[in-house]
Nucleic acid binder design. Structure first.
Length: 464
RNA sequence: GGCGCCAUAGCCAAGUGGUAAGGCAAAGGUCUGCAAAACCUUUAUUCCCCAGUUCGAGUCUGGGUGGCGCCUCCA
């Protein structure tokens, strides 16, 4: 499998540290608010990655942290008159709910920053003792000049960073790019005791401490949004490498941005949607399909029209699933003939093509193309009188491949029982060839918000 | 100012130097009480522009043009 590695700016063959295992660290949310649809897209990357690696036979360990102490959290907690811990509790719960709507499976381990202060302090002490960090009145800073490789991940060097630096230079810092490992206590902020005085950890150190604790000093893949490349991941990498002398992660994967109307989402622009907002408007599985229709590294535009296109495509996959399932139960139960055998044999090629696409740096757009091709071919083939075995094989393959992508996991939405009852009445009316009554019932069903389709497997209600 | 990414049909989007996947939308057809769904067919002589390399370029090189991102908290 090839993975695009931000560190080398190339696709590289995936070779895990431990044969047969894949250890992944994903930067999780800062839990000060509901997460937005752009965050959702980047969370989708690690979910897709872990599903696919598991499908390919790797034993996957995914660690996703919760950043539960930082400036934004402190501000909001103070504004609402609650503790930072209470705020964290609330939005960790919200994260879990919202992630589930997008089909994002829980990580194997979900460490919280505040529960790993001791590990961070130990890491900072190591950095100080090795001459990579220094203490000032404000806390402890990482000495970027002491790291020859600093800038490797984001493709910058210290001179450039100095040239690009804007105001706000801390006099105590040796270099403008130096960043805080430990922030000295300020009134109204949570603080912990440490050898360098009471205070709280900087943002970057938490990910270094937690990833290495659970995954080892060098693990396989580190994921995040592209805006984390600098400074967050650059700094994580610097801290960890300088502390251990070893690489932190073999592969760094970053998602492209999600834009709204071709503009970056931002609170000030008010072009901003939380996953919670969207979940009320669309089937989130269709939104997931929408994201997967473009490569994870390319920027994606989010708009009503585009998502609605994905909703149609998603409906089509669901219809295919229902139709295959119906035929797997009801089609002729006889031994497959030659054509059936050839069809079943052809399914292996579909799987191969799907894997080939996914092996190429998770090319979901291409993989979906293979899936749609397969659905069309199978629909066409099964429309003739075919053995039950063919339908069953088609259903199995569809569920297998869509399961890797996570786009057909949810059962059909529960339908309104009143609409169901009307649909049954309508079946009777149609049997009696009472078309006027049938049409009246269809209108009544439409009033409840459903269209009705007469399929071979009976009436199918579809939300309008 | 520095670094980097992108440009493929009405829209979205793949594409390993060898003759343009797929989806959405649209149109015609089969089927259907009428529909819907499904299926079949149609929709890029051409991949932003100009040069170059090559037997051959959407794909490689150079130069333009246009859009975007990072350099500050940010997925």
């Amino acid at each position: 499998m090839l993975i695009y590695n931000t560190l080398s700016r190339k696709k590289e063959e995936f070779v895990p540290v431990h044969a047969g295992e894949a250890r992944i660290y994903a930067c999780g949310p800062t839990v000060y608010d509901f997460f937005h649809i752009g965050n959702g897209r980047s969370f989708l990357l690690f979910d897709l990655l872990r599903r696919y690696l598991a499908y390919r036979g790797y034993k996957v360990t995914l660690v996703q942290n919760f950043t539960d102490v930082d400036d934004k959290m402190i501000q909001r907690a103070n504004r609402e008159g609650i503790t930072v811990a209470e705020l964290a509790e609330r939005f960790i719960a919200a994260y879990k709910q919202d992630a589930a709507t997008l089909g994002i499976m829980p990580a194997n381990i979900s460490p919280r920053a505040t529960e790993h202060i001791a590990e961070m302090i130990a890491l900072i002490e190591t950095l100080i003792s090795r001459g990579h960090a220094y203490v000032t009145a404000d806390g402890v800073y990482f000495d970027t000049s002491s790291d020859k490789r600093y800038g490797e991940l984001s493709g910058r060097n210290l001179e450039e960073l100095e040239a690009g630096a804007r105001v706000d230079v801390d006099e105590d810092k040796k270099h403008p790019a130096d960043f805080a490992l430990w922030k000295a206590e300020k009134p109204g902020e949570p603080a912990w005791d440490s050898p360098f005085g009471r205070g709280r950890p900087g943002w970057h150190i938490e990910c270094s401490a937690m990833s290495m604790k659970y995954l080892g000093e060098t693990f396989d893949i580190h994921t995040g949004g592209e805006d984390l490349v600098f400074p967050h991941h650059e700094n994580e990498l610097a801290q960890s490498c300088c502390a251990t002398g070893k690489p932190l992660a073999r592969y760094w994967m970053h998602t492209g941005f999600l834009n709204i109307d071709n503009r970056k989402m931002s609170k000030s622009e008010k072009n901003f949607f939380t996953v919670r907002d969207i979940a009320g408007q669309y089937d989130m599985e269709a939104v997931r399909l929408f994201f997967l229709s473009a490569h994870y590294r390319s920027p994606v535009n989010f708009s009503r029209d585009l998502v609605e296109g994905a909703v149609s495509a998603h409906e089509r996959l669901r219809t295919a699933r229902d139709s295959f399932a119906f035929l797997a139960d009801k089609a002729a139960d006889r031994a497959p003939d030659g054509a059936d055998g050839a069809f079943i044999a052809s399914l292996a090629k579909v799987r191969e093509a799907f894997i080939e696409a996914m092996d190429d740096d998770l090319n979901t757009a291409q993989a979906l193309g293979e899936l749609y091709d397969f659905v069309r071919d199978a629909n066409s083939f099964l429309s003739a009188e075919r053995s039950r075995t063919c339908a069953k094989a088609s259903l199995d393959l569809l569920l297998e491949l869509s399961g890797v992508l996570g786009v057909l996991a949810k059962p059909a939405d529960e339908t309104d029982p009143r609409a169901e009852a009307l649909a049954i009445e309508r079946v009777e009316a149609r049997k009696a060839k009472n078309w006027a009554e049938a049409d009246r019932l269809r209108a009544a069903i439409a009033d409840l918000g459903y269209s009705v389709e007469d399929t071979p497997s009976g009436p199918k209600l579809r939300r309008l």
